[in-house]
Computed example of a mutant assay.
Amino acid sequence: MDRATFVYDGDCAFCSKCADFIDRRIPTGVRVLPWQFADLKELGLTVEQCDEAVWWVGTDGVRAAGPDAIARLLGTSRPGWRALGAALRLPPVRAVAWPTYRWVARNRHRLPGGTAACALPQATRDRLYGTAGEG
């Protein structure tokens, strides 16, 4: 793998809006892509893992999920974003970040840009739209 990869749920409009924000506002050399178009086997990830959280896969093979993945992504950008990523790694912030992330993940269909499809479990999406993520 030639560069780090940040993987998100492309079926979720809220997640896709966040990925668009990353592309527009957070300059980074990281490949940001929906897991549905990723080679999950190459990344060492499963559909179930990707359905639960965003993922960071570094060129060194390091994997991180949720806010830890976001912190790593931010750490590859400009100084302001790097500082935010470093803050997200601090134990007291991290202790709050994970429950907050889980709440957002559970309620992403209710957030701005979210749609009903964001709330569908992966098995239902596979049944409705076909199996994705097999690279």
Results as ranks from 00 to 15, higher is better:
residue 113 G to H: 02
residue 58 G to V: 13
residue 67 P to A: 13
residue 19 A to K: 12
residue 56 W to F: 09
residue 58 G to K: 09
residue 67 P to I: 00
residue 61 G to H: 04
residue 113 G to R: 04
residue 10 G to D: 14
residue 89 R to S: 08
residue 117 A to I: 13
residue 111 L to Y: 07
residue 124 T to A: 14
residue 47 V to M: 10
residue 63 R to N: 08
residue 9 D to W: 08
residue 8 Y to E: 11
residue 73 L to C: 12
residue 59 T to M: 08
residue 62 V to A: 15
residue 107 N to G: 00
residue 25 R to V: 12
residue 125 R to E: 12
residue 98 W to M: 11
residue 44 G to E: 02
residue 79 P to S: 05
residue 120 L to R: 12
residue 14 F to A: 12
residue 112 P to D: 02
residue 73 L to K: 11
residue 81 W to L: 03
residue 53 A to L: 00
residue 22 I to Y: 11
residue 65 A to F: 10
residue 68 D to I: 02
residue 52 E to V: 01
residue 62 V to E: 15
residue 29 G to W: 03
residue 5 T to Y: 01
residue 21 F to Q: 01
residue 50 C to K: 09
residue 98 W to K: 14
residue 126 D to L: 00
residue 123 A to M: 01
residue 70 I to C: 14
residue 91 P to M: 04
residue 82 R to H: 00
residue 92 P to N: 09
residue 37 F to D: 15
residue 80 G to T: 03
residue 88 L to G: 07
residue 61 G to D: 00
residue 124 T to V: 15
residue 75 G to N: 05
residue 104 V to I: 15
residue 121 P to I: 02
residue 112 P to G: 07
residue 100 T to K: 00
residue 9 D to V: 09
residue 44 G to M: 04
residue 32 V to Y: 06
residue 42 E to I: 10
residue 73 L to Y: 13
residue 71 A to L: 10
residue 92 P to T: 11
residue 90 L to M: 14
residue 86 A to Q: 11
residue 39 D to C: 01
residue 80 G to Y: 01
residue 46 T to W: 01
residue 128 L to C: 05
residue 102 R to G: 05
residue 42 E to N: 11
residue 76 T to P: 00
residue 60 D to L: 10
residue 130 G to V: 06
residue 129 Y to N: 10
residue 1 M to N: 01
residue 106 R to D: 09
